[in-house]
Simulated scan of single mutants.
Amino acid sequence: MNTTISNSALSVSIKHLGAELFSLKDNQNKEYIWEGNPDFWGKHSPVLFPIVGTLKNNTYTIDGKEYQLPRHGFARDMDFQLIDKTENSAIFALNSNTETLQKYPFEFELQLIYSVENTTLNIEYKVINKGLNKMPFSIGAHPAIALPEHFENYTLEFEKQEVLNYYLLENDLISNQTKVLESENNLIPLQYELFENDALIFKTLESNSLTLLQNSKPYVKVDFEDFPSLGIWTKMKAPFICIEPWVGYSDTAENSGDLFKKEGILLLEANQTFNSKFSISIL
């Protein structure tokens, strides 16, 4: 089942499975979200919850008890309920249940709130701890922007001048090895060689937004002020780029496995709510 919201500038379609954005079109019917061709990558813009990235051995512990979670968690593969809908907004909710409690022993409600305003799509995450104890979690976005022209025709422009220090992955875990992404005037020309070792992972950034340029002209902007970390990723030869705002990231090889002590994890008090928002603007 799908839901569509729109205004005079944008039309947005969301799957109830994973509350996943799969279409963002302008009023000329131009598509900006990756089509999900499984030959490259069969997703469009999954939500990452209750972890971002990969756990060491796909395993973690709570009070000494062992649990398993797949890469990026389970929310992206579960059916959400549409709990509110207007012409230009929609709210989806996933509540903890018997299935989730076996993998993640915390009672929660996860809401995804989509709204369109002019040429901007806002995506808000709301995490509610419905249990009696602190709840450890991470959350992240994974939108894939479709690139209709050659990959090398695109450039990333960081909002601020900064040292772009990123971490390398090793066996899907964050290694101690870092590299600096060399930029000129905050610009990074896209080339597939950047992603030969998987994603570029920035634990912290000064920039709160990235602008994707097509032939040196502004094309799409992603704002992520509420997210301290960022991943940038594509598949080799694939016609998309993922700009991924995160709260949290993969385990390191040295991780103890205790989810409460995981680097980058958030701890949400009982009966409290976490809110964060990012946006995708058509330029």
Rank of each mutant, 00 (worst) to 15 (best):
T4H: 06
A9H: 15
L10H: 01
L10V: 02
A19L: 01
A19R: 05
L24R: 09
K25N: 13
N27R: 12
Q28M: 07
K30R: 12
K30W: 07
I33P: 14
W34F: 12
W34Y: 13
N37W: 06
P46I: 00
L48P: 07
L48T: 06
F49W: 03
P50A: 01
N58R: 05
I62C: 11
K65S: 12
K65W: 12
Y67N: 03
P70R: 04
M78N: 14
L82P: 05
I83Y: 07
I83E: 13
N88V: 03
I91P: 00
K103Q: 15
F106A: 11
F106R: 12
F108D: 09
F108A: 08
E109T: 14
Q111A: 07
Y114T: 06
N118A: 13
T119A: 08
N122Q: 13
K130M: 10
L132N: 14
L132W: 06
S138F: 03
G140H: 06
L147A: 01
L147Q: 09
E152R: 05
L156I: 12
L156T: 00
E162R: 00
Y167K: 12
L168T: 04
D172N: 14
L173H: 01
L181H: 02
E184Y: 12
Y192S: 03
E193R: 07
E193V: 02
F195L: 09
L205Q: 01
S209F: 08
T211V: 12
L212H: 06
L212R: 02
V220R: 03
V222D: 01
D223E: 13
F224D: 09
F224W: 10
F224M: 11
E225Q: 15
S229P: 15
L230R: 06
I232A: 04
W233P: 02
T234P: 13
T234L: 08
M236D: 14
P239Q: 00
W246T: 04
V247C: 10
D251F: 01
D251S: 10
T252A: 13
D258F: 07
F260W: 07
L266C: 14
Q272D: 14
Q272P: 09
